[in-house]
Design a protein around this nucleic acid. Structure first.
Lengths: 189, 189
DNA sequence: CGCGCGATTGAGTAATTTCAAATCTAGTGG
DNA sequence: CCACTAGATTTGAAATTACTCAATCGCGCG
């Protein structure tokens, strides 16, 4: 019984104990240690994950072995390879733990079951998805319009917590700049 | 009574005539000519729009007057300033018509009404939003990992129709490269 | 103390941008 | 049918920016 998940859902819809219990029963706990993988390239992706505690990164590695960060996920965020999950294709990403992690997982079948049984939960996920969409659009705009320096400043303002928890190298891979450039930038602030 | 909208919705959920009629009644038609604006910077955004016919662009203009394309929308796509729409803030984007356009608009109140009255439609929009999320994640990955040349090739493969309907200058603004660079690139293909 | 990882710094290089000018194209009116 | 114009595209040259590669630094930990 996850207080965190309930609180998270109740930011958008209200649930009574029974409703929550049914939802909760479709989730499974999972713990991973720092450096362990949650999803690996070329695997099928059966679950999406709610982060109860800890921090993860979803990455894509190009043919030259260079790594790019698709998304971070910390407490109360959702993570998976959504492309692979929704379209039933193999993952092209790796998701691994930057800290010890506690997760709640839900399979596609269970997710669809929850949503079809509960209009409220369908609503919850619609709202979550639309917020996510807006956030990604902001990131695209940031990638299109701003210099590495501005991008780093925006990141600093938007996710100050992450600055503390993540290496600069990894932040550079999220912002789409080299670690050397980021280093030269941080000097000038 | 829009056949296009019904077909579009029925790609995801099935509706009987009565159900569709209720939904349809919450939409309003709107026509605009090429070059007209649908949404202008600093306005409140009350609607999202379904494109029945035509082509639009959503743009952001930076302090130097440089224009970037946030999204295109053609037949069967949805467009708005979603950030402004969902969060009730003023638009930071302009949306204008690249061709004469026929739209169906729905206000936030009506959208929420449709979704709360009809679990099916709530489902429809959840699925739409999740597909949209995945598509944006792909675009972010493309911006992070690929060179202008590769990006243009991807675009060509993904949206061959748009190549015919949109100027190179505008495609460059979508891909995040200068029109000169894009021009030099197209030569080499 | 020494190892290892992340961060920093420097120098040279590659890619893209910018600015300017030239060219091409489609549509308009004579 | 042709000339003209506005807009889009192309081309050139210089300047800028970020990247790569290599070396060094700094710190925490065994």
């Amino acid at each position: 019984m996850s207080v965190e998940l309930r609180k998270h859902i109740e930011e958008i819809v209200t649930l009574n104990d029974q409703e929550f219990e049914i939802i909760n029963s479709h989730f499974k706990s999972k713990s991973l240690k720092k450096h362990q993988y949650l999803i690996q390239e070329d695997e099928a992706v059966k679950n999406i994950y709610f982060v109860v505690k800890g921090l993860l990164k979803a990455t894509y590695t190009d043919i030259n072995g260079k790594e790019y960060i698709i998304q971070f996920a910390m407490e109360n965020w959702w993570i998976s390879d959504f492309q692979a999950f929704y379209n039933n294709v193999k993952s092209i990403t790796n998701i691994s733990c930057l800290e010890n992690v506690e997760l709640l997982s839900v399979t596609k079948e269970n997710l669809e079951h929850i949503c079809s049984e509960s209009h409220k939960m369908e609503h919850f996920f619609r709202v979550k998805n639309s917020s996510g969409y807006v956030a990604l659009q902001q990131r695209i705009l940031s990638l299109l319009t701003t210099s590495p320096k501005e991008r780093f400043e925006q990141f600093t303002n938007q996710y100050p917590q992450l600055l503390q928890r993540v290496s600069k190298t990894i932040i550079a891979a999220y912002l789409g700049i080299s670690r050397e450039t980021l280093s030269r930038l941080s000097g000038k602030l």
